[in-house]
Write a protein that binds this DNA or RNA. Structure first.
Length: 285
DNA sequence: CAACAGGTTTGTA
DNA sequence: TACAAACCTGTT
């Protein structure tokens, strides 16, 4: 991946493995806003502006090191895609979502966001998360004539009760959020991102399943987007359709068994395969 | 107006 | 271990 860093910009020259629309719309992230051809991305308390100019993609931010990591720019996606192309069913999905990259997202924000995402639609998920940010009224200052607010810290989340989460549209997930937030201080200490690198995925999965509102699908999203584990395959309604199209002959019924089957197929590249398959199915249905 | 939306929990065999 | 039903709420 050919890119350079200068002042407050990352300039990406080779766009074969980077397409901001693919990255933001493949279902992994909710903290962004599209304004015309410009994308604003605001993980945690950071902000960047992403746009295209002269056949390059520009990531503009006061925190370019943060976003270099966030967009996973040091990983060789061409190499990974070449390996995945050994699976014929991935040829078209990889062509369609060629610029997908799996973001390295903050654990706390990922856990809260994906509990809210359960059995929910993107519009309401986004709306609820925006209201959660706005509640604390800590603006991310910028010169773009746009208003963005920081994602709350754990200590701030701990001050919220069930009725608040209901009031921002979390619905029945409100009580799950309150219960899980109570557990998170200990959880994030025991299973921090740093420590997780030495912990097997299945062990982390078992721990995540102890959190309220976290089932297999949400847990695998947290593993993939928060912990960067790639030997996972979150199965939702879209992936079930993919499975029906491609592998129905195996006749698996539950999402859990479908996830097991697909992880066994794609091994340590499962998370990448999931994103290509999910994005191409959802965008082409 | 019923079904659905990027599932999880709870209860029952 | 497996399956069904209930669940907030805004949209279609």
């Amino acid at each position: 991946m050919f890119y350079q860093k200068e002042n407050n910009k990352i300039i990406i020259h080779n766009l074969a493995d980077f397409n901001i629309q693919h990255i933001l719309e493949c279902g992994q992230v909710f903290s962004y806003k599209k304004v015309g051809n410009i994308f604003y991305v605001f993980p945690q308390d950071k902000l960047c502006k992403v746009y295209y100019s002269n056949n390059c993609c520009i990531i503009e931010s006061e925190n370019i090191d943060y976003f270099e990591n966030y967009f996973d720019l040091k990983t060789d996606y061409s190499k990974m895609k070449k390996e995945l192309l050994n699976f014929p069913e991935l040829k078209l999905p990889i062509e369609f979502g060629s610029g997908i990259r799996i973001l390295k997202q903050d654990l706390l924000e990922t856990i809260i966001s994906f509990i809210i995402s359960a059995n929910n639609n993107i519009k309401r998920i986004t709306s609820t998360l925006l209201k959660l940010r706005e509640h604390f009224n800590k603006e991310i200052k910028n010169s773009y004539n746009e208003k963005f607010f920081e994602f709350p810290k754990l200590s701030e989340l701990e001050s919220l009760n069930e009725s608040f989460f209901v009031s921002i549209g979390a619905g029945y997930r409100a009580k799950y959020l309150v219960e899980t937030i109570k557990l998170l201080k200990q959880f994030l200490t025991d299973f921090s991102f740093e420590k997780s690198e030495k912990i097997e995925t299945k062990v982390l999965l078992a721990e995540l399943l102890k959190l309220k509102g976290v089932g297999r699908k949400v847990a695998e999203c947290i593993l993939l987007f928060g912990y960067g584990k790639k030997d996972v395959f979150p199965v939702d309604t879209w992936i079930k359709k993919v499975y029906s199209d491609l592998f129905k002959f195996t006749n698996l019924k539950s999402a859990d068994s479908i996830s097991d089957f697909l992880i066994n197929r794609y091994k340590n590249l499962s998370g990448y395969a999931q994103q290509y398959l999910f994005y191409s199915k959802r965008e082409n249905s």
